[in-house]
Design a protein around this nucleic acid. Sequence first.
DNA 1: CAACCGATCACCT
DNA 2: GGTGATCGGTTGC
Length: 217
Amino acid sequence: MRRETGHDPLHHASILPRSFFNRDPREVSAELLGKLIVRRERGKLLAGRVVEVEAYLGADDLAAHAAAGRTERNSVLFGPPGHAYVYFIYGVHYCLNISCMPEGEAGCVLVRAMEPVSGIEEMAKARGLSDLDFGSARNLRLLASGPGKLCEALDITRARDNDKDMVSPRCDLQVMEDGYLVGKVGITQRIGITKSAEMPLRYVVAGSPFVSVKIKN
DNA sequence: CAACCGATCACCT
DNA sequence: GGTGATCGGTTGC
């Protein structure tokens, strides 16, 4: 298995300002592509570049957890922007969202897939895939090509991470930017929902092999 | 390779 | 008591 280089892969990276998330989730979604999700734990640095997200809006979006109003579970969505909203789904998986909009207004971006950048061995271990050879993109994409996989790779759980401030310099779960620019952005319907399913709110880096599913037109 | 299915939890009605 | 912003293994074209 290939080793990480000694040089810090986030040397040129900086934390996004909170204002980045203080607006409509659709704007945030388009610009979040190419940014970095960073996990720091036990002296290790785990990071991936976002290649797929979905926007979830407020009361008009019946697929959003916030649609029925504020509850104890979804209260993070109504809090300040830039916080992690983590929920448990289908009895098996966690999903990571980042809250958007000013405090008091709901909205978020679901982080659905990322290209692994740093801490490949750690992520593989967390995914139970330590035996694979990650020299090939074919295996590399197994690490975080879906919201549940991404959370497993970064060891994200509701108990541990819900409501964490992802734009705080001291947080062990952060969003960063390093000047990387994505190419063409594709927009499709969201995955796996039934209500408000027709709205085109899924944003992917066109041609990336690290996205979850390719949607046929 | 598409389609189906089981796992099995938190939340809301 | 029903539902769901998923995944991975299996089945059957």
